[in-house]
Design a protein around this nucleic acid. Structure first.
Lengths: 232, 232
DNA sequence: AAGTGGTCTAGACCACTTA
DNA sequence: AAGTGGTCTAGACCACTTA
């Protein structure tokens, strides 16, 4: 008989849950009981259950125990490439052309709630990304001058703000909104479409850690033929 | 002096990396050395490093050791609610109206590569979701009859296929594509827009586990005012 | 008050990878 | 051949939560 590793235990418990033998709400045996059942140390069961909790399959609470979670409440975890990486990682030639550079207020709607009432200063950069000389992405970036040291000097015009930000603080967190909008005159010109044509928009706010103060906001526009693909 | 728990160690190492004192490519001390430095057991260091690896901050390999990862290669992990849950969880009244129900081939482009050459049978369901009596989402669902037992009988017309699928196998995996399309006559009629108006499209394929055979495909259309919001 | 999970320890064995 | 991380063990202490 094979040894019961934490992955076997995890798989076994996941199977009980998937098959509804342990339905949503079901109270799992305690770690001690499971350790006895699987003939292993409690730490081994603990690791299996901790991972199942990370995967939103069970809920765990001291004294109350571990319960099968209602699967319909699960949060989807969509994995995909960071916007600016898509071109180069598909083997295509990437080029960025800077269009504008100015100091302005950090976009209001997205200011962090905890910040002071005065408007935050931002460095705004606009540019277009090309994939094999085809316009691919129109990018507007606001870099918050209060939270991001990099503001003026170190920003060469030929490298994309999104990639520089990524280099600078690669362990980012933040929020993202995906929507549809009609092309402004400017967007239409640079993306090679007509004014009013539908575009796909990604709007990200990068923060210091989860829910921290904003570091930057990036608004990226794509032609309607663009798609976001990911797995979950 | 405070005890060094795995979270302290993890935070300390993350800080070294974020501050670039340990730059991308840097070889971390071995678990044994770190355990000595932090005056703790190797298992404690191991847990800290394992989590940092899960978060794509370091790469670990036996014998080669742990290295700081190039942050610009990180995969974004966007968390958001499952499509059909959005209405009810925002407190609005949800209603589903079934429109069509037929047997057809499982959509070709999305058939799994490992499956046989013959076309897969599917039960196709079409319907509209309402949020407070406003049309909200037009849904087309193909349920694969080879992999999903639930096909004909148990599908009452009044409950949404996406929610039933979620109830039935809540521990889903799969892939999703987000795109922009122009409304067909049918979509326009049911969503209350004009033919040719831009829509946001979510196209998901649910599979058995990661990369397994397809269980279902769902294509969801939304008016242009709809947005997808998530955090990462 | 009692039972649960969260975490740590000191040791062990081993698979894997490189030198 | 040697060093690394992956995993397990048997025990421990304790924070948290409920009954």
């Amino acid at each position: 008989m094979k040894k019961n590793g934490y992955q076997d235990i995890k798989a076994h418990i996941a199977a009980m849950i998937r098959s509804k033998q342990w339905p949503p709400g079901f109270l799992l045996p305690s770690e001690m009981d499971l350790a006895a059942q699987f003939d292993c140390a409690r730490a081994t069961v603990n690791r299996a259950l901790t991972e199942l909790a990370d995967e939103q399959i069970i809920d765990r609470k001291r004294k109350a125990g571990s319960r099968v979670r209602d699967g319909s409440e699960r949060i989807v975890n969509l994995k995909f490439q960071f916007p600016c990486r898509e071109v180069t990682s598909s083997g295509k030639a990437h080029k960025y052309v800077s269009l504008k550079r100015e100091v302005c207020a950090f976009p209001e709607a997205l200011q962090h709630e905890g910040t002071s009432e005065r408007a935050l200063d931002a460095l705004k950069l606009e540019g277009v990304h090309y994939s094999n000389d085809q316009p691919f992405q129109f990018e507007q970036t606001w870099i918050c001058r209060d939270t991001c040291a990099e503001s003026e000097g170190e920003m060469p015009d030929h490298s994309a703000p999104c990639l520089r930000l990524l280099q600078k603080s690669p362990y980012f967190h933040g929020s993202m909104t995906i929507s549809v909008a009609r092309a402004s005159q400017e967007e239409a010109r640079y993306l090679g479409v007509r004014t009013g044509d539908p575009l796909l928009i990604k709007d990200l706010v990068l923060t210091e850690g989860h829910g921290g103060p904003p570091v930057a906001r990036m608004r990226m526009s794509y032609r309607a033929s663009y798609t976001i693909a990911g797995t979950f």
